[in-house]
Nucleic acid binder design. Sequence first.
DNA 1: TTTACTGTACCGTCTGGACGGTATTGTCAA
DNA 2: TTGACAATACCGTCCAGACGGTACAGTAAA
Lengths: 197, 197
Amino acid sequence: MLAQIGRNVTARRTNSREKILAAAAEVSRESGAGNLSLDAVAQRAGVSKGGLLYNFPTKAKLMQALVQYYLDDYEVSMARETDPNSAMPKTALQAHIEFSREFCEKPPGAASGILAAMADDPHFLDPLCQFKRRLLDRLKSEARDPLRALMCFLVLEGMTSLDLFEMDVLSNEERELVLVRLAEEAEADKNHAAASA
Amino acid sequence: MLAQIGRNVTARRTNSREKILAAAAEVSRESGAGNLSLDAVAQRAGVSKGGLLYNFPTKAKLMQALVQYYLDDYEVSMARETDPNSAMPKTALQAHIEFSREFCEKPPGAASGILAAMADDPHFLDPLCQFKRRLLDRLKSEARDPLRALMCFLVLEGMTSLDLFEMDVLSNEERELVLVRLAEEAEADKNHAAASA
DNA sequence: TTTACTGTACCGTCTGGACGGTATTGTCAA
DNA sequence: TTGACAATACCGTCCAGACGGTACAGTAAA
């Protein structure tokens, strides 16, 4: 019977939530961040509108979850890459560079949810703002030269924002060139930190 | 005095158009980029809805004008600052830095219209995308080192995108530090170009 | 007379979300 | 073990209101 599949209640819900979140990002990308309707999301997610509202009681809750989803994803990656117990722990800057690369290589508009949230109410981006500030502080504190760290941060910020808007301004070669250059910078920082330790 | 200025028909219209464009940006900022309604814009601009639709027959036309308005502003500034006949002609990079500084110093969300256009339909940003690509090519061609130019471009892109989203990530000091650093870079480029000429 | 509007009334469509229902699973006393 | 009840995870329908856009009559300046 179906019962043999260990699909317990929680897993069911979690699955639905993720499906809905992914669907919301897709719809946002396709119909414009400001035209995200619950009906469209529900349909795309293969869920009824009632089911959608069950998981996210209001549209605002959905938007918040969309931002949080992105943040959690980052936080997990960052923790994993910089884990001092791992074989090759990275510095925060190295991890950030890697994450930015992945961000740009992801299917276009994977983070369109962020835009949808912003379109609805700019305050939904407040957690993202605080997150970025904390990240920047960490990058500055780990670097030889805080200004360089700041510049690196902004370069990546520029790159990812172009990507977020799906503005194909940079070629792949240009992107790669920049990432390699930043990686060198990060490597130098790392060696410096190791030497002075 | 003011009456002596022949406020002709065109000027009247132009005035209305600018008032509407400014109002649209304000409304976009206040109610979220995706919640820009024609009624709200008309009210804010002190224009009837009929008058709004007289100037911009459809919402799409308004959005396009919003983007074009920003682009024209930039183009005019750029032409003025880099005019070889002026006393102190700047390089494109120097002008771009200056423009980015002004962008960040403007009243918050002066360019929210861009976000509103994007929220409605991402394709409205196509002209902006092409514009950025042309700018980047110009910066690269004028610089000693194309990669450095690209990095400078991205730093400014990151700075202005944070500003566009009204994410107060950078302090004023940090912004100034970055701007000064970029200005030095641009100055070095300029001297190099002058020496090799 | 033309231009550049104002003001009002209206229409069709879409949207968030409230609501009532239902099937499945979990709990727990008898 | 079972039967009553409750919680979970949805489905499908409905509706008041908002929105973009149209139509049209009026007006004030050039």
